[in-house]
Design a protein around this nucleic acid. Structure first.
Lengths: 156, 156
DNA sequence: TATTGTTATACTCTATAACTATA
DNA sequence: TATAGTTATAGAGTATAACAATA
């Protein structure tokens, strides 16, 4: 992807060809956002994983762990620790499902819902502040283009 | 960042508010590119870290490990294993620097340079293929916007 | 005192494989 | 046989702290 080369002649001295790869640019940009996220929710706050999981459980009450793992794009096994962590803090609960005793339907507690709404607002506000020098058009463009990348892998 | 909402009314049923966060979109998009990268260079090929390190050593011969770590945005200590790995495969060498015996200047071997050039071309070609349904304008936009995100954190 | 490279160590994230209890 | 949740385990990737050699 030989783009992003609005580089002047003199940049040739300092710019590496990594800069012309989307993967490299994406990783570096992502790390900045990720760092901001962590600062926002704090040392002992929700991890990105817990945040996403809690979000989806809030949005889809009684979702199963398998289904949640699928939506998050991780393995079932990896979800156990996340759900344990959230359950330990009384943010969500595993509940029995009449008719299929294998399944553990997940529901957010009142506290979990409140915690999530609070965290979501904080993250949104911090992103807004971080990206304050982007125009609305630029932000829309960025979201749309990232969505287009994500669409390359249809499954949901 | 309440963008990316070209969502229709009916999407409200299936879309979570995670979709309105840049961090979430960036992570999902990045994982797709990262996955493609790994498939490109194969099981026993260069890792992203080794690829980036080899690239910078090729681009900046005699770079020190401290300087390389700084450019990669990782700790000095983390670089040791990467350099060991590359040195074991005869892709680069640690060399003594007359005048400062603390420093280990890194230089790519002939084989390292060849390996990198080959890998770079492969990654570029795979990215191009992966993103074949993006217009040139879209790609330029995406690169520019990611650069703008990266610029939020000036340090090199 | 400060810096370079290094080791030891630990933590997060993730995957694979195998188990159990159900279906 | 197949599925949901779980456990055990291992491998990246990364960070912090401390050390030896050198400046």
């Amino acid at each position: 992807m030989a783009h992003a080369q609005s580089a002047t002649k003199s940049d040739t001295d300092t710019v590496s060809d990594l800069e012309s790869l989307l993967g490299y640019n994406m990783k570096r940009a992502y790390l900045i956002i990720q760092d901001d996220f962590r600062k926002t929710l704090g040392e002992d706050g929700l991890s990105a994983r817990a945040f996403s999981a809690l979000s989806l459980v809030t949005r889809f009450p009684n979702i199963t762990q398998s289904e949640l793992a699928r939506k998050l794009g991780i393995e079932r096994s990896g979800l156990v620790a996340i759900v344990d962590w959230l359950e330990d803090r009384n943010l969500l609960a595993r509940t029995n499902v009449p008719g299929d005793r294998r399944v553990q339907a997940l529901v957010a507690t009142k506290e979990g819902q409140k915690t999530y709404q609070h965290a979501f607002k904080a993250v949104l506000a911090h992103e807004k502040a971080l990206l304050s020098n982007f125009t609305d058009d630029e932000l829309k463009m960025l979201f749309d283009l990232l969505q287009k990348v994500r669409a390359l892998q249809e499954k949901n």
